[in-house]
Amino acid sequence: MNIAAADWQALWLTLKLAGLTTLLLFIIGVPLAWKLSQWQSRWRHGIEVLITLPLVLPPTVLGFYLLLLFSPNYAPGQWLSQLFDGPLVFSFTGLVFASVIYSLPFMVQPLLAAFNANGQRLTQAAAALGIPPWVVLLKVLLPASRAAIVSACALTFAHTLGEFGVVLMIGGAIPGETQVVSIALYQHVEAMEYGAAHRLALMLMGITTVLLLAARWLGHRLAPRGSSSERAKPVMGVLG
């Protein structure tokens, strides 16, 4: 395959964005899902809906609000551009910021499902052996939810790879900064360069297929054979 340097750049940028987003979301998502699974308040439903919103809203809606949030005309935007040393619109940092919000449900939902299924029983058992809460999370809940974690990370990564609408709204198509594969592909089609569009589309298809297959394989390996209830079956079902 004959791929132009600009397309390689777009691919590298996309993988970097998806990887960074997955890493950040793992760090944010684990404690968030854990706290949510333990929280027994009416407000919990409100928060859960808020986290699910990016799943159902058109990406343009999300992009529009993010554009407003990043705007240097208002206080939040000014504060953010101070914090990140430059405006977030049309920047890679802005894309990471947006992707974290855009892919949040794909990380939190599988983790929440796993913590809800195992969480209370195992947390009670661990606390009743004198194990403090943070150790319970790291040494009991995370190992018990390994299959769900693999699935959550794979979904987050794959979902971020395919991001289009939000990027278009807040990132534009600056090569090496915000031009991800989906945008480059769109531009090839616009310019009627179908050969290049095919190559990028196939590559994205290939990467995501391999990724999801690998996640399934790993998920099955992590769930011991012959077990019944403890397995994270419903979560892996999302991938099927």
Binding site: R121, Q124, A125, A126, A128, P132, P133
Partner: peptide, 20 residues
């Protein structure tokens, strides 16, 4: 909080730590 009480409680359904 439970983990600060000097006790242990065992359950009928064992509740072994999965994935270990």
């Amino acid at each position: 909080a439970t983990h600060k009480r000097t006790l242990s409680l065992g359950f009928q359904d064992s509740r072994l730590f999965a994935g270990q």
